[in-house]
């Protein structure tokens, strides 16, 4: 279900939750990756549990945002298994068409990222596994959240205008920009002749994308705290 049509404090709240959960969980996650040196596997298929984890995290955030979004609508308040029902209902209302569309968009974005990586200098087919995993990571960090939160049919519009109409959209755009900038910056260490294992393609770029993703969330979090208009963490006044 797309969260496009709504404004107001709820969306700010969802955005805040998004940022704070990503910051906490992914920072810990990246520390784990770093200390057991799993990040060196970022270019091979064997890293897929990490990808799964990222996907699950994104889904959880989305589910929570759905609950938060609809908690005032009273429909599911008293039912057990409300979460599953809510999801099912969402899927039913927005249609399976939307669902398949999202899958196609994510798949297409992997191909687009692959082509981009090749244009920017990756081997065409020689390092297929590495380049493929890199483009998988990028699309998981950028397009997958978009599909969940914006809805497949609205993605082209959002991507072509890059204009944010609400808090969630600006968060997603910021996150795309951060991820891509991180991946771009990551390439800096590749040419250096230090002969370290972490200089192998695509580890620096993947790590850079990951860091850019987390950093953009931190930046947003700080912005939310500084900004004078969003005071939703204050106790709401009862009317």
């Amino acid at each position: 279900m797309a969260l496009t049509k709504f404004h107001g404090p709820t969306l700010d709240e969802i955005g805040f939750f998004y940022c704070i959960s990503t910051c906490v969980v992914l920072t810990l996650f990246s520390l784990v990756l770093f200390f057991n040196e799993t990040y060196l596997l970022l270019g091979s298929f064997s890293i897929y549990p990490a990808f799964l984890f990222l996907g699950v995290l994104e889904l959880t955030k989305w589910t929570y945002s759905q609950i938060l979004h609809q908690k005032d609508s009273l429909i599911y308040r008293n039912k057990k298994l409300s979460v599953i029902l809510l999801l099912w209902n969402n899927l039913k209302t927005s249609g399976f068409k939307e669902f398949f569309k999202s899958i196609i968009i994510v798949g297409g974005s992997v191909i687009v990222y692959y082509i981009l990586a090749v244009l920017f200098g990756a081997q065409v087919l020689k390092n297929f596994e590495e380049t493929f995993m890199f483009s998988m990571l990028l699309s998981q960090l950028t397009i997958f959240p978009l599909c969940l939160n914006v809805g497949a049919s609205d993605i082209p519009h959002l991507l072509s205008t890059m204009e944010s109409s609400n808090a969630i959209h600006s968060l997603l755009i910021m996150n795309i920009k951060g991820t891509l900038a991180g991946a771009w910056l990551g390439a800096i260490v590749i040419p250096l002749d230090w002969d370290r294992p972490w200089q192998e393609w695509p580890i620096p770029c993947s790590v850079g994308a990951f860091c850019g993703y987390i950093l953009s969330h931190y930046v947003l979090l700080i912005q939310t705290f500084i900004s004078p208009t969003t005071k939703f963490w204050m106790p709401r006044k009862k009317q």
Binding site: L119, F120, G121, W184, A187, P191, L192, D193
Partner: peptide, 18 residues
């Protein structure tokens, strides 16, 4: 950086495309 000079062909191509 000497390694950047050595690999400048790909570096410049990267910068150009960017």
């Amino acid at each position: 950086s000497n390694s950047y000079v050595v690999e400048e062909s790909s570096v410049v191509s990267y910068m150009y495309l960017t």
